[in-house]
């Protein structure tokens, strides 16, 4: 899958990677000597669109930083060719950091969308750098916590909405501060805020669909019931009850019922 893997050599390339790491969330606060340690250990890979960088379920534990190009993070749908796209990730961003930390199988697949350059740092190399510079762990923790707090704020909002949906209360769909979401206005950039907003927008859209379906269902059931034409019904009943047959039947029936009632009492 990985077509080429090469160490970082040449001053141009080193400078390029240095700039990239200095801009990234994870490494921007690290002193230069640590960045140089990292640059010595990362390997560069070049990939083509459709190539898989990470495969869901696999037990490997490198972390990757996108240098050039874009990837999608997806969960393949079982038994089908379909997939659920979780995220699009571009230059300066990391993928695979969860397995680096907890060593669990990969939670999603990562696939190249364009010609791609990525930098790989193995867990082993990562731990070795951390031994020499333990503060790197703290920096990572800070970055991860910031993200986590950010995600939680949005999750709380979604959870609050879910409770309302469960109660059949869709009033939040009309609230003024959700009007961008309502009109489907989304920011396609790769900032965390834009990403979280896209998540909320998807949730919002779902809630709108649920409400629409619920209203339609209620209408359908009502429609079904209302359409009894009472005039037509009455004239049909008259034509049946007006026949000699029915008059005779009704007479006989009441006799039969009287007799049954009598024999019940006996």
């Amino acid at each position: 899958m990985m077509r080429t893997a090469r160490p970082i050599t040449g001053s141009n390339m080193v400078q390029e990677i240095y700039d990239l790491l200095k801009q990234s969330d994870w490494f921007s606060n690290l002193p230069d000597e640590v960045i140089s340690l990292l640059i010595k250990r990362v390997k560069q890979h070049e990939l083509k669109p459709g190539d898989k960088i990470i495969e869901r379920g696999k037990r490997d534990d490198s972390v990757f930083m996108i240098q050039e190009g874009w990837v999608k993070v997806v969960i393949p749908e079982e038994g089908e060719d379909g997939e659920m796209v979780l995220n699009h990730v571009g230059p300066g961003e990391m993928v695979g950091e969860l397995s680096l930390v907890d060593q669990r199988p990969r939670s999603a697949s990562v696939i190249a969308l364009s010609d791609l350059k990525v930098l790989e740092l193995t867990r082993r190399d990562f731990l070795e750098v951390m031994q020499e510079y333990p503060m790197m762990g703290l920096h990572m923790l800070i970055t991860t916590s910031k993200r986590m707090r950010f995600v939680l704020t949005y999750l709380e909002q979604a959870v609050q909405w879910s409770h309302k949906i469960a109660e059949g209360d869709y009033s939040f769909l009309e609230e003024a501060n959700n009007s961008d979401l309502e009109r489907g206005i989304v920011d396609n950039s790769s900032s965390d805020t834009a990403r979280a907003n896209r998540f909320l927008a998807a949730f919002f859209k779902m809630a709108q669909d649920v409400r629409k379906r619920e209203t339609e269902l209620q209408e359908q059931v009502k429609l079904l019931i209302i359409q009894i034409d009472r005039t037509k019904r009455d004239s049909e009943i008259d034509s049946i009850t007006g026949s000699d047959f029915f008059t005779k039947l009704k007479l006989e029936t009441s006799q039969i019922r009287e007799e049954r009632d009598k024999s019940k009492k006996d």
Partner: peptide, 17 residues
């Protein structure tokens, strides 16, 4: 619905218990 509505009324006229 329409035919059932007629049938229900007829059954009631025939005093089905």
């Amino acid at each position: 619905f329409q035919g059932t509505a007629v049938t229900v009324d007829i059954a009631k006229l025939l005093l089905v218990d």
